[in-house]
């Protein structure tokens, strides 16, 4: 027996509301500070746990031990990707955007980032490299990397 059968159905009033706060300020964390410093230097960090290398860097390892932060170097490859046609409000983008899961040989995990590549040319296994913002604009955030781009054949 459902509710509406027993109750008089009335016109339901709706009240507008919002959930907001002035702002959140997130601390970067123990590993996060080092990762941020490295990004400003144009470096990407991972964490070494015993014989394994994990990306992204974290303070602790899967077995809960403390990991060792190390720089990871490319070449980065596309492990999976998606092509985005709409923004978060469902509006059509002027130009589709490629978002990819990027990894490196011998490491577990990876990074999610934009890839500046023609959606028709993107494929799993494509080699890419990070393109950083100019040094003075870097803030130690993942967006210090503007995007990844295919490695030029030379």
């Amino acid at each position: 027996m459902s509710l509406w059968k027993k109750s008089r159905v009335v016109d339901v009033i709706h009240v507008e509301g919002r959930m907001e706060t002035e702002k959140y300020v997130y601390t970067p964390g123990l590993a996060g500070v080092k990762v941020a410093e490295a990004l400003i230097e144009g470096k990407i960090m991972g964490v070494r746990c015993g014989g394994e290398l994990y990306i992204p860097a974290k303070t602790y390892c899967p077995d809960h031990s403390e990991g060792e932060l190390v720089e990871v170097r490319g070449p980065w490859v596309i492990k999976s990707y998606t092509i985005v046609y709409e923004d978060m409000y469902g509006e059509k983008l002027d130009k589709p955007v490629v978002v990819a899961l990027l990894g490196i040989e011998g490491a577990r995990g990876g990074l999610i980032h934009y890839v500046d590549v023609d959606p028709d040319k993107v494929r799993i296994g494509l080699k890419v490299e990070p393109v950083f913002k100019p040094r003075e604009e870097r803030r130690g955030l993942i967006t210090d990397i503007m995007f990844f781009k295919p490695v030029e054949h030379s």
Partner: peptide, 27 residues
């Protein structure tokens, strides 16, 4: 009021202390 650690790092630190005090590991 304000620790550098992220929430998950705080959880990790407390969890490690508790495990160590019991002489146990995550395994």
């Amino acid at each position: 009021r304000r620790l550098l650690e992220t929430p998950r790092e705080l959880a990790w630190e407390a969890a490690r202390e508790a495990l160590n005090s019991a002489g146990l590991t995550l395994k």
